[in-house]
């Protein structure tokens, strides 16, 4: 599902963030990308989200080679993946329901489908009863669950999450992970960058460890270190 070949990333300021990365990720996998700050986790996630192209190498996702996508093909690609951020990125002036519906309106979905899919997504993350509340009336964990609902509402086959529990306490973090697990079981590939040791060790999923922009470890049912 994801094929990464000889990927290098050097930022314009000269920082070498990724060094000859080679990686295969299959459909339905749940993958942790771990490492210290500055190891290159975020860069890898952002490359998958097409925030920028790699300096060298090839990235193939869902059969599409990202480096060959034309500018106007990027939106269609982004619709096929769901993205979750550490800092939530919700619209404060809109309620929970509208935040999730927004992701469907933006891609031109039919109102009928929006009315059907948004409650389903909110139900999946257990927030249907808070649909009319504004993000700032919710706890951090609840806000991140809204983001999960927004990420899955368009039925993506891949979810990429950049430190989704970075701003949350351990108990709330585990809740988010349980939701991600459930999403994964329903057939969505999940790639999550984190430096939360407890979560990684508890789940026993595939772990890819980065250090100084290189893969130093890639284990099925791995641990944090």
């Amino acid at each position: 599902m994801i094929e990464i070949r000889h990927v290098n990333m050097v930022y314009p300021n000269g920082v070498r963030a990724l060094n000859d990365i080679n990686l295969n990720i299959d459909r339905n996998e749940f993958v942790f990308v771990v490492g210290a700050s500055g190891a290159g986790k975020s860069t890898l996630i952002r490359l998958l989200g097409l925030e920028f192209p790699p300096t060298a190498g090839k990235i193939k996702v869902l059969g599409k080679e990202l480096t060959r996508l034309r500018r106007r093909e990027i939106p269609a690609y982004r619709r096929s993946i769901g993205v979750v951020f550490q800092d939530f990125r919700l619209l404060e002036n809109r309620c929970v329901y509208d935040n999730v519906a927004f992701a469907m309106q933006v891609v031109g979905a039919r109102p009928r489908d929006i009315r059907r899919r948004v409650p389903e997504a909110l139900e999946a993350v257990g927030l249907l009863d808070k649909a009319r509340m504004k993000p700032q009336e919710l706890s951090g964990g609840e806000q991140q669950r809204v983001c999960l609902a927004r990420a899955i509402v368009n039925n993506p086959s891949l979810i990429i999450a950049d430190e989704p529990t970075g701003n949350l306490d351990p108990k709330t973090s585990m809740e988010i992970i349980e939701h991600l697990k459930a999403i994964n079981i329903r057939g969505t590939t999940v790639i999550m960058a984190t430096h939360d040791r407890e979560i990684v060790n508890a789940l026993k999923k595939r772990v890819i460890a980065l250090e100084n922009g290189r893969i130093i470890r890639d284990e099925q049912r791995g641990e944090y270190s």
Binding site: G49, R71, R72, P75, A76, Y77, R78, R79, S80, V83, R89, L91, F102, A103, V106, V107, G108, R150, N154
Partner: peptide, 16 residues
């Protein structure tokens, strides 16, 4: 700008 960024991340076209 935040709204625009989110729109881009969920796959809105530029003209949208």
């Amino acid at each position: 700008s935040k709204e625009i960024m989110i729109m881009k991340w969920v796959g809105a076209t530029e003209w949208f």
